[in-house]
Simulated scan of single mutants.
Amino acid sequence: MTTGTVAGSGRLPTPGRAFAGELVRELAQAAVTTRTGVLRVTGEPGGDLYVVRGLVVTVDSPGAPGVRALLARPGRTSTGPADLRVVAMMAALDGCFAIASGWIGSCCWQPDSGPDGPEQPPVPGIDPGWLLLETERRLGALAHGRVSPHRNHLSLTERGRALLSAPGGGRRHEILLWANGRRSCRDISMLLCRSLYAVTVEVARMLEDELLAIAPVTAEPQAPGIEPNRAGPVRFLLPRRRRGASGINDALPPCPPRPARGQRLLTPIRTERA
Rank of each mutant, 00 (worst) to 15 (best):
R261L: 04
R40Q: 07
A223Y: 05
P74F: 06
A72Q: 14
P228N: 10
L12I: 11
M90K: 11
P62T: 04
P122W: 06
T33G: 10
G54W: 03
G114A: 03
G46V: 01
R85Y: 00
A219G: 11
R186H: 04
T33E: 07
A30C: 10
T79C: 08
D250R: 15
R76W: 02
G16S: 03
L131P: 11
N229L: 06
I104Y: 12
F19E: 15
P118F: 00
A213E: 13
T14G: 10
R172P: 05
L93M: 14
L191S: 15
G232E: 14
L27N: 05
R273S: 12
D48I: 00
E210S: 13
N229R: 10
A166N: 11
L93Y: 14
A166W: 06
E22R: 15
R146W: 02
R258G: 04
R146F: 01
A143R: 02
S246M: 06
R161N: 08
S155H: 05
G262A: 07
L133E: 14
T2G: 13
G160S: 08
G160P: 11
L176C: 11
T2D: 09
A215F: 01
L177D: 08
V52K: 07
A179G: 09
A274T: 01
R186T: 11
G75L: 12
I175D: 06
S155T: 09
G125C: 03
V217H: 02
S78L: 14
W178H: 15
P149M: 02
E208L: 06
E26V: 00
G21A: 10
P149I: 03
R171A: 15
V87C: 10
L196D: 00
L237E: 14
R258P: 09
T77M: 12
V86G: 12
Q263C: 12
P224V: 02
E202R: 13
P15W: 03
V217L: 03
S78Y: 05
P216S: 08
V51K: 01
G102D: 01
R270P: 09
P221D: 15
E220P: 11
G66W: 03
R73E: 12
R230D: 13
C255K: 14
Q263V: 15
S106D: 14
P74G: 10
S106A: 13
S148A: 02
L196F: 01
I99Y: 07
L55W: 00
N249K: 06
P81S: 14
A88R: 12
E158L: 05
P124F: 01
P221K: 13
L266W: 12
T33F: 03
